[in-house]
Amino acid sequence: MTKASCYLPALLALSASLRKARTAEGLGLRQLAHKLGVSAQALSLWETGKRAPAIEDVAHVLGFLQVDSAEYNRVMRLRRQLEDPISIEALDASPTSQRRTLEELAVRIFEWAPHVVPEPLQTPEYIQAMAREHVVAPDDLDQAVFEHQVRQLGQGWTAQRTVLLGAAALKPATGPQLQALRAASNGPGLVVKIVASSAAKTTDSFTIYEGTGKTFTVALQHQDNLIFISEPDTVQGYRSTFEALERKSFACNEYQPNKSCDAPRWPR
């Protein structure tokens, strides 16, 4: 297995799933390794994503731990994805999902959000404005805000993150949202910049996760699915696109929504 393949999202999700299945049974790593007849070192490498277990080994672990059939099929599907540079999963917030695993293990994250402010950065005014656009009844607005805030609690960011926002993403509540972004940009580990509409030639959102050892995975959302790409040439294309957008971006404190900011410029 190559160094880059050690960071395939399917492998990270697989390792997290094996570890979760073991701890759910209250078994220590050495204890389970002894019962399985494998070395503790091998099991540790499987659970940390540093080595891919054979498909027979995955079946052995899951069978011994007696995981239910739905989880068994999900984890076995992850194992079969390991040799594929593209993997797909349903859009969810499962603790063992590929996206959550990448979020937890990433060193740096680069996000392009042309149409909607990422949920952890949304203000109540922004959420209410979006709800009104979707013709939510007035009595349901408070509930919409509450549900968004509950989801935000589970989306804390630990890695260094750069977020590029398309100017159109601010429109539901430009004033309050921009003020909140200016405050958030002063915090550690987070950079937020605005890309003017004329410079935002790329319409689709994407996220780039950088792992240790300069390994990268791109996540794209398509309808109800997330697509993860680890193929080097494709990943490099998205990295180049992000760098080009960042060169045309404005710091939140510099961006003036009521003035023309369409002229490309180098950020300070």
Rank of each mutant, 00 (worst) to 15 (best):
A52M: 00
K35W: 01
G37T: 09
Q143K: 10
H60N: 04
F110V: 05
D92N: 13
Q128S: 06
R265G: 13
N253E: 11
H115D: 08
S69H: 11
R132N: 09
R182N: 08
R239H: 05
L190F: 05
L27E: 15
T123C: 04
A167L: 06
T96F: 07
D68I: 09
F146W: 14
P124F: 01
D224H: 12
I227F: 07
F146S: 13
N258M: 12
L14A: 10
Q221G: 03
Q179N: 08
A144W: 02
L178G: 00
A54R: 11
V163K: 07
V67Y: 07
L153Y: 14
R77T: 13
P124C: 01
S205I: 08
A244F: 08
A184R: 06
P120R: 07
R247V: 03
R239N: 06
K50Y: 02
T2Y: 01
D57F: 00
Q256H: 12
A169Y: 01
R151M: 11
Q160R: 15
G154C: 06
V107P: 00
G211Q: 14
S198K: 02
S87C: 12
E147R: 13
G37H: 10
L65T: 03
L245C: 02
T202I: 08
D204R: 09
A70L: 08
Q149C: 02
M76A: 01
S205L: 10
W157K: 10
L141T: 09
F216T: 12
T23Y: 05
P257R: 02
G26Y: 12
I127Y: 09
S197N: 02
R265H: 15
H134G: 04
Y126A: 02
L62I: 02
K3G: 10
W46T: 00
S69M: 14
L14N: 05
E119I: 04
L32S: 11
R99L: 14
S197H: 00
Q41P: 15
R161H: 13
A167T: 01
A199E: 10
F146G: 13
L105N: 04
I109S: 03
L27H: 08
S94V: 13
A10N: 06
E71F: 08
D224V: 05
N258D: 12
W266I: 15
R151D: 10
V58G: 02
L65I: 01
Q177M: 07
T203D: 06
H60D: 07
F206M: 05
R151H: 15
V163G: 06
A42Y: 00
V136Y: 05
V235C: 07
